[in-house]
């Protein structure tokens, strides 16, 4: 029952929200000097799109995600979800951060349950929490504390903690960076099938070009800091995708060239 609820057979096409990023610039004060991080970034994301963000380390990808999540206001420009300005965090936009940041004083189950608990709907959602933990393959560890988990398991809990809220925009900041390659591939397929069945909008930051091309409908490539959009292209390949697809290899070469890594290929 619950598993079906999490993965309905028919794609729920309208579950995702649109996201408009307009001329957003951001900067940090660093020892008196100003560190410019984002430079007039504009990006319009359709409901249900899966956008992968690629860019050099430290260019400002995580910062952009924080702005989308509403954790900080931008210095300039505006962000809108479904046309409404983003003024603060909201559970319709959940983030899986680069670090799993599980609450060490809560068990796996209670970590995943925090969202429903904060909404006051935990009573009705207990089965859903169980089902989500099951989905990431950790039902055996529901009662474990974070210090008893491996890094990859912790990252899966963080994913479950986000998914249980049934977000309209799922924000993923290198969520699979710490997983072993096998789990990584499994989780990639899981994310795709979840996204396809639930229809939420997905924003994924990754360092892994293949991952971006395997998962996303659209890839955005950023320049060095301050980040500017350098390229923005669609990956119009049908799902499920196959890693050996020659079209993927071609896109990979183009992306690496845009990232300035053409020589190494």
């Amino acid at each position: 029952m619950v598993a079906v609820e999490l993965r309905p057979e028919q794609p729920a096409a309208s579950a995702g929200a649109s996201l408009d990023i307009e001329n957003v610039s951001h900067a940090f004060d660093l020892d008196g000097s100003v560190l410019r991080v984002l430079d007039s970034v504009s990006l319009n994301v359709e409901p249900g799109e899966f956008v992968a963000l690629l860019g050099p380390s430290g260019c400002g990808k995580s910062t952009l995600l924080r702005l989308i999540a509403g954790l900080e206001p931008p210095r300039a420009g505006q962000l809108r979800e479904n046309g409404q300005p983003i003024t603060g965090p909201h559970p319709s936009r959940v983030v899986v951060f680069q670090d799993p940041t599980l609450f060490p004083w809560r068990t796996v189950w209670n970590n995943v349950a925090l969202g429903p608990e904060a909404q006051g709907s935990l009573k009705q959602q207990r089965e859903r929490v169980d089902a989500t933990i099951d989905l990431v393959g950790l039902s055996q560890f529901a009662k474990a504390y974070p210090h008893q988990l491996s890094g990859g398991m912790a990252q899966r809990v963080a994913l479950a903690r986000a998914l249980v809220n049934d977000p309209e925009i799922l924000i993923l900041d290198e969520p699979l960076g710490k997983l072993d390659s096998l789990t990584r591939l499994t989780m990639q397929s899981e994310i795709v099938s979840l996204w396809r069945s639930k229809g939420f909008t997905s924003i994924l930051v990754t360092h892994d070009v293949e991952e971006a091309l395997f998962l996303a409908t659209r890839v955005v490539i950023f320049s060095e800091r301050p980040a500017r959009i350098k390229a923005d292209f669609r990956v119009d390949l049908p799902y499920p995708r196959h890693r050996g697809d020659p079209r993927l290899a071609e896109l990979r070469r183009e992306s690496l060239a845009l990232l300035g890594l053409a020589a190494s290929w």
């Binding site: 924080r66 999540a69 509403g70 954790l71 603060g88 965090p89 909201h90 559970p91 936009r93 959940v94 983030v95 951060f97 670090d99 940041t101 609450f103 004083w105 809560r106 925090l114 969202g115 904060a118 909404q119 903690r161 809220n165």
Partner: peptide, 25 residues
């Protein structure tokens, strides 16, 4: 502060941040 970020994106209100994050931590 990452704990607060996570809790806030999950919809925890300021009072909840005190009781569910600050105090246990």
């Amino acid at each position: 502060t990452a704990y607060y970020d996570v809790a806030r994106t999950l919809g925890v209100k300021p009072l909840g941040l005190i009781f569910k994050v600050a105090i246990p931590a």
